[in-house]
């Protein structure tokens, strides 16, 4: 495993830790999109079907289980926890799941590396992950006061995507058979979605003012 990949996994993990911290200790999910969290739970469930088939490494298995467990528990907290769910900004989180899920499913049926159940689900999870942040970005735009933890959560998620691209570039030059167009194209699209957010995040940090996205 190269340093970009490890750093990518760690920022991904950090984003989950930041979100759980907010939910668990502050008992708030204000500014967090339930739609995005539900989409992530679907993404991990579809992609990690290989847990039952492949064993890659202990690291790999543990990380997959952590992402599965954390994504489902975040959804549970936001929907069922009696204090947390009251802080959910339902009125502004109006993005419809099927707008993203259906096109991704269709695309996965058409463009995949092999037409088998697991490969189609893998491609579906890659496409869906690329756009799953959309409801969250829309909610951020509608949120007047973006708190620090929410901003950091999205920032770490974006950093994870940038680091994964560096990891692919590194692997492309060091591993002869490492070519996965599906994940590369989807990954680049996914990273570009964060570009706007990154700009405003860095500006707010530089000028030491509160993060706010223009409507």
């Amino acid at each position: 495993m190269n340093v970009f990949r490890l750093a990518g996994d760690m920022t991904h993990l950090l984003s989950v830790v930041v979100l759980l911290l907010k939910i668990h200790t502050i008992k708030s999910c204000a500014g967090i999109s339930l739609k995005t969290q539900e989409l992530y739970a679907v993404v991990f469930a579809a992609r990690y079907l290989d847990l039952f088939v492949h064993f890659v490494s202990l690291y790999n298995t543990v990380m997959k289980l952590v992402f599965l467990a954390s994504s489902f528990s975040i959804v549970w907290y936001m929907k069922r926890h009696k204090i947390v769910r009251r802080t959910y900004d339902k009125d502004h989180d109006t993005f419809r799941h099927y707008v993203l899920v259906l096109p991704c499913l269709l695309l996965a049926l058409l463009i995949n590396e092999k037409f088998t159940f697991r490969e189609v689900m893998w491609a579906f999870s890659i496409y869906l992950e690329a756009v799953a942040i959309f409801p969250q970005l829309v909610l951020l735009q509608r949120t007047r006061n973006i708190d620090n933890l929410t901003g950091q959560y999205v920032f770490f998620l974006g950093a994870y995507r940038v680091l994964y691209i560096l990891n692919w570039i590194y692997r492309y030059f060091t591993e002869p058979h490492f070519v996965h167009w599906i994940s590369w194209v989807a990954g680049i699209v996914q990273t570009l979605l964060y570009a706007d957010f990154f700009y405003y995040y860095i500006m707010s940090w530089k000028n030491n003012v509160k993060l706010e996205l223009p409507a």
Binding site: H12, H54, V56, E113, W122, Y164, H180
Partner: peptide
């Protein structure tokens, strides 16, 4: 093989 390099990522 190619399948393994894909599934080792998260």
């Amino acid at each position: 093989d190619s399948e393994d390099t894909k599934h080792d990522e998260l």
